[in-house]
């Protein structure tokens, strides 16, 4: 029994790392643009396919193709901003959420249908030579390809925090997320900040997708599930701390994994949502969240 628990702790933490990675992008677009992109999971799905096809067609190792996936999906993010989300951000902050929900829900359906059409509905996994490698401590298996997801999440969070706190651009981004009107009056080109923040958000989703197709699997319909996880993580952590997002992701992974041992596998999603409700009622700003001005 304790062996089983230890193993599920490890799997939970590793999966939770990917939750955190997906949530980083969502926190960025939600925190800066104040739009809720429910197609975030579909961007993850696209990134997963990109890494998969790069591996199958060109033999590119998923870690080698990581920068490529980032750049391509950054570009796709710019395109999505210019064609869709730009118009959403023209409205007042409080109408943005509603409008972005409609727009991004439509986008999610379109991307999903296109993925079925062009990639088929088959489940895909990147199987490299090292895919089955794992190291074992105290007879607990730690699969390398899943550990990679957690490592990428931690690196991404530290890089983001560094950019947000150490660069002028990052400070302008934080200023814009606090109040776009005052940011504009400061001389910040708010539209440009929005465009870049959204593109980075898309690229982060895609990076997570790479890790998902390496350690787990991708199919056209996985998007919504990942969006939901990311949303839960963002609410758990609150906006304001990137490291906090990864910690919350790991916590969610742990809770899910342990609940399937203790309560039963069919309840893991329910347990996560119950946790979500509890946090929402007691810490509406999340564990690491800060209200503007506090």
């Amino acid at each position: 029994m304790s062996q089983l628990i230890a193993q599920s702790i490890v799997s939970g933490v590793l999966l939770g790392g990917v939750y955190g990675l997906v949530a980083l992008g969502l926190a960025l677009s939600f925190g800066v643009l104040r739009v809720l992109n429910v197609a975030h999971g579909e961007l993850l799905m696209l990134g997963g396919y990109l890494a998969f096809f790069a591996f199958r067609e060109w033999g590119l190792d998923p870690f080698v193709s990581l920068p490529l996936v980032f750049v391509v999906m950054f570009g796709f993010g710019v395109l999505l901003y210019l064609c869709l989300f730009r118009f959403v951000t023209r409205t007042e902050t409080h109408t943005r959420i509603k409008n972005s929900l409609l727009v991004s829900f439509g986008l999610a359906l379109v991307l999903q249908a296109l993925a079925v059409r062009f990639f088929t509905a088959d489940e895909r996994t990147i199987s490299t030579a090292y895919s089955s490698e794992a190291f074992t401590i105290w007879s607990i298996r730690v699969p390398m390809v899943r550990l990679a997801g957690l490592v990428v999440a931690i690196v991404a969070a530290f890089v983001l925090e560094w950019v947000l706190h150490r660069t002028r651009f990052g400070k302008a981004l934080r200023a814009t997320s606090e109040d776009w009107t005052r940011a504009a009056l400061t001389g910040i080109d708010v539209r440009r900040i929005y465009q870049i923040a959204f593109a980075v958000s898309a690229a982060l989703a895609a990076i997570a997708g790479s890790m998902v197709s390496l350690g787990y699997s991708v199919s056209p319909s996985i998007g919504l599930g990942w969006t939901l996880k990311a949303l839960i993580v963002v609410v758990l952590a609150g906006l304001g701390s990137m490291r906090g997002i990864v910690v919350a992701g790991v916590a969610l992974g742990l809770v899910e994994s342990l609940s399937s041992v203790w309560i039963g596998g069919q309840y893991r999603e329910v347990t996560a949502l119950v946790l979500f409700l509890i946090v929402l009622s007691f810490r509406p700003l999340g564990f690491f969240g800060r209200a503007a001005g506090a």
Binding site: R174, A175, E178, D179, R182, A292
Partner: peptide, 10 residues
């Protein structure tokens, strides 16, 4: 602008 012209989170 009037009131809180500086960014509180910075």
């Amino acid at each position: 602008p009037e009131e809180r012209a500086a960014f509180q989170s910075l």
